[in-house]
């Protein structure tokens, strides 16, 4: 079995990506666990997590450090946040999710992972959670909503450090089902640009997710 480090805290094992399990012996979403040289790894499923899909498709900018502060919008039941929790193990991941049904699972997960901060709130109203937040190094947004770019930018302006990085997962079909995905991606990109952001990198998520694109951005000043 060959294991190589891909990014800080991200490993490649036999063509899979994986993170070292912060919570030994415990699976989060039925993922595979692997023991290598006394360390336990969780195989990161690209069909369940868009970040894993982006990594497998060649993502180059990887802003998550061991002590990063992260704001995660649309955390759902915590599939992707759990891997970020493995990576930024000494950091803090603020997880915003507005569905109580999802939040119940996320709260259970957070009970076991002390670097997760669950927030039951609406990401379109970022001021709502101002009392709990600090400025963050990374904002990761995956809400699959029509106004996903706007909400992402609002959160960036309010909570990103000046040199912070934003990762925006765009799902074309939740913006407009009738338009061609490529056209939507272009439109969203120019939206980001005209509002003061620079797109550092774009990664398509095919074949893991249809009509999805990962945008990595920063402030352009």
């Amino acid at each position: 079995m060959k294991i190589t480090q891909k990014f800080n805290g991200v490993y490649e094992i036999d063509g899979n990506v994986a993170t070292e399990n912060l919570n030994k012996g415990i699976k989060v979403y039925g993922e595979r666990l692997m023991e290598i040289e006394g360390k336990e790894y969780r195989i990161w499923d690209p069909r369940r997590s868009k970040l894993a899909a982006a990594i497998l498709n060649g993502l180059e900018t990887f802003p998550f450090k061991e002590d990063s502060k992260v704001l995660y919008l649309g955390a759902s039941a915590g599939t992707t946040p759990s891997h970020i929790s493995d990576i930024s193990k000494k950091g803090l991941i603020y997880c915003v999710e507005f569905s109580p049904r999802m939040m119940r699972k996320l709260a259970d997960l957070s009970r076991e992972r002390k670097n997760l901060i669950p927030i039951l709130d609406n990401a379109t109203k970022p001021k709502n959670y101002m009392n709990l937040l600090q400025k963050v190094d990374v904002i990761y947004s995956d809400v699959a909503q029509p106004n996903q770019s706007e909400l992402f930018m609002d959160n960036m302006r309010l909570y990103s450090k000046k040199d912070g990085i934003g990762i925006l997962m765009i799902k074309a079909r939740s913006i407009d089902v009738t338009k061609a995905p490529n056209k939507i991606f272009k439109e969203e990109e120019s939206k980001l640009k005209t509002h003061g952001f620079r797109v550092i990198e774009k990664v398509k998520l095919e074949p893991y997710e249809k009509d999805h694109m990962a945008f990595v951005c920063e402030f352009s000043f």
Binding site: G91, L92, S110, K114, L120, L132
Partner: peptide, 24 residues
């Protein structure tokens, strides 16, 4: 600070989920 924020957020979330399940 991280631990304090975590504990605080758990306290808040437990309360909010309780309220949400009452509504549900």
């Amino acid at each position: 600070l991280n631990a304090i924020l975590h504990d605080l957020s758990m306290g808040i979330i437990n309360y909010k989920l309780k309220e949400a399940s009452k509504a549900r």
